[in-house]
Computed example of a mutant assay.
Amino acid sequence: MTEPLRLSKRMSELGLCSRREADEWIAKGWVRVDGQVISELGSKVLPSQTVTIERQAAAQQSKLVTVLINKPMGYVSGQAEDGYQPAVTLVKAENRWSEDGAPLQFHPTQLRSLVPAGRLDIDSIGLLVLTQDGRVAKQLIGETTDVEKEYLVRVQYDRPGRLPDNQLKRLQHGLTMDGKELLPAKVRWQNDDQLSFILREGKKRQIRRMCDMVGLKVLGLKRVRIGNVKLGDLPVGEWRYLGADEVF
Rank of each mutant, 00 (worst) to 15 (best):
L120Y: 05
L120N: 06
D121N: 12
I122L: 14
D123R: 09
D123W: 06
D123S: 07
D123F: 13
S124C: 14
S124L: 10
L127G: 04
L128D: 09
V129P: 14
V129C: 15
V129F: 15
L130V: 04
L130D: 05
T131P: 13
T131N: 10
T131H: 11
Q132Y: 00
D133H: 02
D133F: 01
G134F: 01
R135I: 03
Q139C: 05
I141D: 10
E143K: 06
E143L: 01
T144F: 09
T144N: 14
T145F: 13
T145V: 12
D146R: 08
V147P: 14
V147A: 10
E148G: 13
K149M: 06
K149A: 04
E150Y: 08
E150Q: 09
Y151N: 07
L152Y: 13
R154I: 07
R154L: 03
R154T: 07
V155N: 06
Q156F: 05
Y157T: 11
Y157R: 04
Y157C: 12
Y157V: 12
Y157P: 12
D158Q: 08
D158Y: 00
R159V: 00
R159D: 02
P160T: 04
G161M: 00
G161T: 00
G161Y: 00
R162T: 12
L163D: 11
P164A: 12
N166A: 08
N166E: 14
Q167F: 08
L168M: 12
L168W: 02
L168A: 04
H173T: 05
H173G: 08
H173C: 04
G174F: 07
L175H: 12
T176V: 15
T176P: 12
T176H: 12
M177Q: 11
M177I: 06
M177C: 04
M177T: 03
M177F: 02
D178K: 14
G179D: 13
K180F: 01
E181L: 15
E181H: 15
E181N: 14
L183W: 10
P184Y: 01
P184D: 02
P184W: 05
A185H: 04
K186E: 04
V187L: 02
V187N: 01
V187W: 02
V187G: 06
R188V: 00
W189N: 05
W189L: 10
W189F: 05
Q190P: 09
N191S: 14
N191M: 11
D192P: 00
D193R: 15
Q194F: 08
L195T: 07
L195M: 09
S196F: 00
S196M: 04
F197D: 03
F197N: 02
I198K: 06
L199W: 12
L199Y: 07
L199M: 08
L199G: 06
E201K: 08
K203V: 01
K203S: 02
R205Y: 05
Q206E: 14
I207Y: 01
R209G: 03
R209E: 02
M210K: 02
M210N: 02
M210I: 02
M210V: 01
D212C: 06
V214L: 13
G215T: 10
G215H: 07
K217H: 13
K217T: 13
V218W: 01
V218F: 00
L219H: 01
G220K: 15
G220N: 15
L221A: 14
L221E: 14
K222C: 10
R223V: 14
R223N: 10
V224T: 13
R225Y: 07
N228I: 07
N228W: 03
V229P: 06
V229N: 10
K230E: 11
K230G: 08
